[in-house]
Amino acid sequence: MSVINMNAPFTRDKIKKLKVGDIVLISGKIFTGRDGVHKYLHDGNQAPVNLEDQIIYHCGPVVVKNEGTGEYTVTAAGPTTSIREEPYEWELMRDHNIAAVIGKGGMGETTLDACRKYGCVYFHATGGAAQVLSDRIKKVEGVYLMELGSPEAMWVLQVSRFPVVVTMDSHGNSLHVDIRSESEKKLKELLQKQERS
């Protein structure tokens, strides 16, 4: 199994080389952003930090604050379902020049088009794997938009060898579209076969 190691932030050239099915280990800085952050930016609010070439991680982590030192520790941080950000993600790609998104379940046509147009990529992380993934988070660098509540805030995380799979690339390919249509076809065949027998 070939694995590609990549250091964030990525150049667009590197993103162009990624294809659907590639297994990637990401090291560097990533920013969490889920429903609250996407809505906040969509409503025209200024981004709290420059997101150019950065990675947005669809995740609402469990974070514990050490009251003595004021430091944060992530105790669980797997991906959340990405499709809820479908109305907004293309805007983050166009207006904030983000380079990549990490989430689960894949996204729709609008995001796939935006990936092609703006040279972005969608990485799929294993849903529910909160411990494997938080184990790869080496440091919480900071937090923005805490007023949205802890899971919805924008956490800045330093990660090392964070495991993901490319499921939507910058060339218009989506593994999610392929598997959906193949599975629909397969089910139709199976049901027809049953009816005949």
């Binding site: 609402g60 105790t75 669980a76 941080a77 797997g78 959340t80 849903g127 529910g128 909160a130 411990q131």
Partner: peptide, 10 residues
Amino acid sequence: IKSLPLCQDT
């Protein structure tokens, strides 16, 4: 082992 949440969405 860590006695921590399996999934962050508890």
